[in-house]
Structures are given as C-alpha cells and as structure tokens.
Design a protein around this nucleic acid. Structure first.
Lengths: 250, 250
DNA sequence: TTGCCGCCTTGATGACTGTCAAAGTCACAA
DNA sequence: TTGTGACTTTGACAGTCATCAAGGCGGCAA
C-alpha cells in the first residue's frame, strides 16, 4: 500500500473516528522513503512495552492508544493517537509503554529509527519534522495532564470532550464522534468507567451535550464545558487562588 | 559566567535540592556557543505563558517548575526541572506554560531557538542532542501522568517520593532532599496541600519513610512505596484488572 | 427469533479527599 | 527576645468517587 494512498483513503470501517479526515498535520513526509505502512485490526499491538525502541510511528488513519499497565493490573492510557500523530519516541533504549490500534481501520506508518536518524543527520528538513512531531507529542501529553489534573470527574469528562472536539474536527464543529469506548475514556482520565458514564449522563441532563447513540455527541453549551467551574454544583469558588498565596511566588 | 563553571559550581544556597550534583546528563553541550547563562532568584519567572517561544532552556543547577494557571486560578505544575533537564519546547509559536525558579541558587542556560535550530540544521550532533532532550521531557511528562493518574493520594505521594529519589540521586540512595514545598508537591500531584501533608504523616507513621526536618526524608520501606498496593488499607485488590476484561483488548 | 457477548448505565455504600478553620514550626530581622 | 511571614500540620465535615452488583442495549451468529 502506498503511503499517500493510505493517507487519502483514510476511511474508517468502524465508522466512528475521523469521518472528516482530520488532515494529518504532522505525518513525517520527508521520511516517506523509509515508511512501512501497516494496517491494523482493533486491539492489535503496535509497540510492546519493554521491547527495544527501534521504530518511530505515525498514525495515518483510525486511532491508537498508548498505555502502560501498572503493577496492580490497572491500565493508564498516556496518549490517544489520531491521524497525523506520531509516537514511539523513547529516551531510553526500550519503549516504556505499549501502543495498540483502537479500531479496525487503523493504519500506521513505521519508520526504522536508526535509518530515520541517519536521514535526519543529513537532511535538516527531516530533523525538524521529527523535532516538531516530538514537540506535538509533548503538547498532547501536557494537555492530558491538565485534564487528568482537574478536580471533579465532571470537569475531566468535560475537558476530554473539548479536547476531542478540537482534535477531531478541523473546524470547531459542535459534533463529536468519540473514537473510543467508555473504558478507554476512563483509563485516559484515570477514573472508573462508571464515573465516566455517570458524568456523561449528567452533562446530558444539564443540557450541556446531546447524545446520538453512545459514541456521537453534540456540544450544546461550550462555555459550560470550558471553564468547568460552571459545572460545579455549588458556590463559584470564592477561594480560587488560595494555593498561590504562598505557592505561586516567593 | 562561564557555562562550564555554572555547571561544576552547582551549589545550592537553599541547601536542599542537589547537594550531590545530579550530573546534568542532558545539558546541550554542543550548543554551548549560543548559551546565555542566567542565575535566578527564587520565584523568578523564566518563561511566561503566552509569550513567544523564542528560547530553549536547560537547568544547570537548582530547580524550576513548569506550570499552567487554570481559569479558576488553580495552578498545575506540569514538570519539575532539575539540573540537566531542558524546557521551553513548544509546538506552536508561543509557550503554553510558564516556568519559574524554585530556589535562589537556580541557574539556567538559554539558547535562542532560531539560532539553535540553524545550528541543528548544520550539525547532526546538535540536532540529536535537542531531540534527546525533547524525548526526556516526554518521558518526564509520562512519569508524572502515571503518578497523577494513581488512585489514592497516598500512592501519588509515594510515587512522587520514588520519582524524586530516582532523579535526585545518582545512586539509589535512601535519602531524599525534596527540592520543593508542600504546595509545589500538591500542585504537581493535583491534590490539596493538606492531603500531601497528611499522606506524608501517614507514611511516616507506617514506618515507610522517616523525616528529618520538613524537606529531607529517608526511605525505609521501598517496596511499600513501589507497588502502592501495599499502602491500601484494605483488601489486596482481588479485582485488579477488572478494566481490561473488556478494555484492554477488544 | 433466540442467545451470546461486548459495552454502557444505574443504584447503593463506604472510603477518600477537598475545604474550612486553626494552630504549630522555623528562619530571620528588629 | 519578640514579631512577622512563609510554610506545615491537624481536626472536622461534607461531597465525590471507586467499588460491588445488577440490569439494559445492540449487534451478530446460529
């Protein structure tokens, strides 16, 4: 399969994720020559935790989840990968995470690290492209940290929806097709599935979102999702900023 | 001030962070020619959120915190920077975070991004060094996400201690000098200060750690901190892995 | 149609943690 | 010594969430 084709053919058998082809903004184009295109079935493992980090990847279509299994058996998803997102970067010699395809239509491009690095050495464009991809991964991770760091589950789910809305649709449409199950959302947000479900129900009852089926929703009140504070049942946080009296400066 | 001096002179007026000079493993050496060494006072801002991302930085000594202020006034620390750690990477044109020095002895090296990129274009060693620094930032962020994603505060605080122990001391000594206040820990873990304090007290009472002063502790029972499960008051999680029955695969 | 299997939702309950309040500790300066 | 300010700890209480337990829903195959 040609990599260009893989990109333009972006088409999602699961019928969920990216109907609109969120235009792989990253996709290491200057590395095309090294790319191996791999179509994946749902649940198929792409990277294994602990295995040597010999390949960098880029999602061409579909979706993938990067995750870690904790000692207690819990799974923590540490990145949701959509078309254009790169992964497989590791500071050490081995992957310290696993990655698997979420849906059947998922296609990724793999780039042998060694050869990619050599190419980067000789071609600044490649080098910059990889750097940019790493910076974007950094940015995604920071976003996730900010979401997971929120106080209530309602806020977490709310900001998750906004994040997905921003990443899935080029225009900020109100319609969002969640690419993942409640379980995945739960493990991404580090809360229980039940809580995710309840939060969604809650948002629905408040008229903040509207659902059509379990995976598609429409944002009715963006502001409510945005500040999160308006989602609080109670008072409007008169003590916000308390932490900083002493923490922020000095 | 010479950059080499800054590095070897690493000495901490606050007397906390890195008595043992955790050997800046990163530190963009091949970029020394561009470096501007900046000594900072505690609380001094190094990067401002929203300002153009024109400089990359590396901590030479002391410590810094990278953070974001939320709409509700809360602060979320999204990276703790110790000697050798680089920051200032941004996918967009502006910093989407702020960074400030934690202690008085903090010294950072600043590298003009534009010029650094040009140098990277012509020198693969520079390019690799920057890439490596970005990968390390990625790794730190993933670690933090895993810590923040834990269930109980006791586990969060426990793994925070382990993380600090690993990053502060070259050998895995049992002695840890926390470089930051309880407030900083709280904002790093996304819990309240009170909870951090209580967790620490709890760990102390259980004999897992021993404290000398408020900022220095000794790890007495590493295993207890490690699995975190043994910290649970109750049953040994017979239902661990529940999520994955359906979530992990298919 | 029936049954099965993922996945999603809802209830009940207790534990955990954020919040509010207040007091304790420490370093430093007057 | 006394005072101040930053930081830390402890207590009380209510709200949120993980957990345990059932059902519900929808697609697919027999």
């Amino acid at each position: 399969m040609n990599i260009r084709n893989a990109l333009t053919t972006t088409e999602n058998p699961a019928g969920q994720a990216n109907a609109k082809t969120p235009s792989p903004q990253s996709h290491l184009k200057n590395l095309d020559s090294l790319a191996t295109v791999v179509p994946c079935r749902r649940g198929q493992e792409i990277c294994g935790q602990g295995r040597p980090a010999e390949t960098w990847y880029c999602v061409l279509s579909g979706a993938a989840r990067r995750y870690v299994i904790r000692l207690d058996g819990r799974r923590q998803i540490v990145d949701l990968l959509l078309p254009g997102d790169c992964f497989g970067f590791s500071a050490g010699g081995d992957y310290d995470f696993a990655v698997e395809a979420v849906t059947d239509g998922t296609v990724v491009a793999g780039y042998p690290r060694r050869r990619a690095e050599m190419l980067a050495d000789s071609d600044p464009r490649v080098s910059r492209e990889i750097r940019q991809a790493a910076f974007e991964a950094l940015s995604r991770l920071q976003s996730q940290l900010l979401i997971v760091g929120r106080i209530t589950a309602l806020e977490k789910v709310g900001s998750f929806i906004l994040e997905m809305a921003a990443r899935l649709s080029r225009a900020s449409s109100r319609r969002v097709a969640l690419p993942v199950s409640r379980y995945d959302i739960a493990d991404y947000l580090a809360v229980s599935v039940e809580t995710v479900s309840r939060s969604l129900t809650d948002l629905k009852h408040r008229g903040v979102i509207r659902m059509s089926g379990t995976r598609t929703l429409e944002i009715m009140d963006r502001d409510a999702l945005e500040d999160g504070e308006s989602l609080a049942h109670l008072a409007p946080a008169q003590n916000a900023g308390r932490y900083h009296d002493t923490a922020q400066l000095r």
